[in-house]
């Protein structure tokens, strides 16, 4: 396992993008793509907040999602791929995002979707890891006095 550096300066310089899509498929490609021409033109606003689109002829249903408070999404780029496992790696932040659109394959978005459930963890983590409030502390220690 190698050390990974994320360039902090790049994070402050990176632009915030609204065009971030979480697709329900693995696309074996990294690099620029004609998203505006081919994908954005297929996006339609159905009833309510539900969106629909098409990718490779398949029907998608989607929804916009905000990241939880205090979180920022980062899109990382690696300029040089490491030659070996041991080599230190350097990543740059190319874009930041506060919201994204997630897409299901032929299924209406719901609170049972994995991405919804995954983000629940941020609330639980906050509760679990915040310090216990002093009032409760004093209640516990009272009888000893």
């Amino acid at each position: 396992m190698s050390l990974i550096h994320v360039d902090k300066n790049s994070a402050s310089q990176a632009r915030t993008t609204k065009a971030c899509h979480l697709m329900p498929c693995e696309i074996d490609y990294n690099g620029p793509a004609k998203v505006a021409d081919y994908f954005d033109t297929s996006v339609r606003h159905d009833q309510g907040t539900v969106l629909s689109a098409t990718f490779r002829g398949r029907p998608l249903s989607g929804k916009e999602m905000q990241l939880p408070d205090g979180y920022t999404g980062l899109l990382l780029k690696e300029l040089h791929r490491p030659y070996s496992e041991e080599e230190e790696r350097h990543l740059k932040v190319s874009h930041k995002f506060e919201q994204f659109t997630y897409w299901n394959l032929d299924a209406e978005p719901s609170i049972n979707d994995k991405i919804h459930k995954a983000l629940e963890w941020t609330h639980i983590a906050k509760t679990l890891h915040s310090p216990i409030e002093s009032q409760e502390n004093s209640n516990v220690s009272e009888p000893d006095k």
């Binding site: 004609k34 081919y38 490779r56």
Partner: peptide, 11 residues
């Protein structure tokens, strides 16, 4: 290579 074809094509 990414999106395949325009919508004119029956995928």
């Amino acid at each position: 290579p990414v999106f395949g074809f325009p919508q004119f094509v029956r995928f």
